[in-house]
Each structure stands twice: as C-alpha cells, then as structure tokens.
Amino acid sequence: MRSLRYCLLLSLLSLAACSQVQPWEMGYLAREEMAFEVDSLESALNDHIFFSKEASSGGSSTTGGGCGCN
C-alpha cells in the first residue's frame, strides 16, 4: 500500500515536469538538431533503397500515404 502511494506520488511529480512548448518557443522545434534524421541526403537514399526493394513509397515521413501509387 505504501509503495503504491509512493508510485502515485512519483508519477504525479513527474507530471509536473511536463511542459507544453509555447507558441513563441516553436522555433526550437524547427532547428536542424531537432530533426529525426541526422543527414537528409542519407535518409533520402535510404528511402530510395526502401522504395526500390519494397515497391512502395511514402509513409516514412508526414508526406505521402504509403499507397504505392507512384
């Protein structure tokens, strides 16, 4: 019972650590170092290999639905 209480307290405390990115802070998200891919050329090549092997494209990023209709 006590450990459960501690868990609850800890989870609530960690909730307080969450903070929303404010509209005026969105620039941080647009920075290069925030991108999922380190090297855009390499990821484009990887995409191309994937597309050639699997005969499907898209779905690896926000653009394209992976319908394979290209």
Partner: peptide, 21 residues
C-alpha cells in the same frame, strides 16, 4: 494531509501543462 498534497500537486501539474490561461 496526503490527499491535500496530492490535490495541490495535481492542480499544479494541470496548471503547468495547460496552454496560456
């Protein structure tokens, strides 16, 4: 006492997480 602490914590976390009020 625990209940009031938890309530305070919960409302604090809500206040932090909500957009500009």
């Amino acid at each position: 006492k625990i209940r009031s602490t938890l309530t305070t914590l919960f409302s604090l976390s809500l206040a932090v997480a909500s957009p500009a009020l």
